[in-house]
């Protein structure tokens, strides 16, 4: 028991990573239920690293959404059928939006649904249906470097977790109470008693985006515009007719 508590994080990472590695597609088909459960347990153990003092209902909702998001994400990267993978991606996005909503950021949740689930994944599915009318191809059947990919991802994850554990709770408090920076990250940690922001979540977000982060937003917009023009320039022209 003592040993488990000492190596809690390592065990969690091994469970998560091992489950994903086992599930990644390869030439032989394998059982899926066991490894899926193992990765979910690993994810739960990782979540347990952080102290939680929320009420029972809220933490139940949190674990439901987070677990579902993890499950959908794993199923997305391990599925052989690209259409199914795209759908699992959409579901994972919806689960993350549920998490946003739990953190009093309904506008962020709705905007994410519109942009990701409503537009980007639809475009993915659209392209997949256009491109793969003859069925799945060889490169969908197995992943190229399952072991290296899993190890790399788990290393990155452990780095992130240790950084979050190392930053003291005081830092987070300070970040939340900065008067102007209530952007994406800040809006998540706005306490519900701040009526002005809680009642108009969009107002604070808009002020922050087009006040504090104006140059970043404009830069991103310009980049997207350039990319759009480039895509139009590259696209082959047809004299007449569409679908």
């Amino acid at each position: 028991m003592q040993w488990i508590e000492e190596h809690w994080q390592a065990i969690a990472l091994v469970l998560l990573g091992g489950g994903i590695w086992w599930l990644l597609p390869r030439s032989v088909s394998r059982r899926r239920i066991g490894p899926l459960a193992a990765s979910l347990v690993g994810g739960y153990m990782l979540a347990r690293l952080f102290p939680a003092d929320s009420p029972v209902g809220e933490s139940f909702l949190f674990f439901t959404f987070a677990g579902a998001a993890l499950l959908c994400a794993i199923l997305m990267i391990t599925n052989r059928n690209p259409v199914y993978a795209a759908l699992w991606f959409a579901l994972a996005t919806l689960c993350v939006c549920g998490l946003f909503w739990l953190q009093f950021a309904p506008f962020l949740a709705a905007a994410t649904v519109i942009v990701y689930a409503g537009a980007i994944v639809v475009t993915f599915v659209f392209v997949i249906m256009l491109a793969q009318q003859s069925g799945a191809t060889a490169y969908d059947q197995r992943s190229r470097q399952p072991l290296l990919a899993t190890i790399g991802a788990m290393l990155l994850l452990s780095l992130l977790i240790n950084m979050m554990l190392a930053s003291s709770p005081d830092d987070l408090q300070v970040a939340a109470q900065r008067p102007t920076a209530t952007a994406a990250a800040g809006a998540l940690s706005v306490p519900p008693d701040q009526q002005s922001i809680a009642h108009a979540p969009m107002r604070g977000l808009g002020r922050s985006l087009f006040g504090d982060y104006l140059f970043a937003v404009e830069l991103a917009g310009t980049l997207l515009l350039v990319a759009t023009i480039g895509a139009i320039a590259i696209a082959p022209r047809r004299s007449r007719g569409t679908l």
Partner: peptide, 25 residues
Amino acid sequence: DVNIGLVFIFAVGSLAVYGVILGGW
């Protein structure tokens, strides 16, 4: 208490296309 009314409608409405796409595919 959902004070993002219109945005919510657009979010949900943007998911409606899945029914049509998946049905066809």
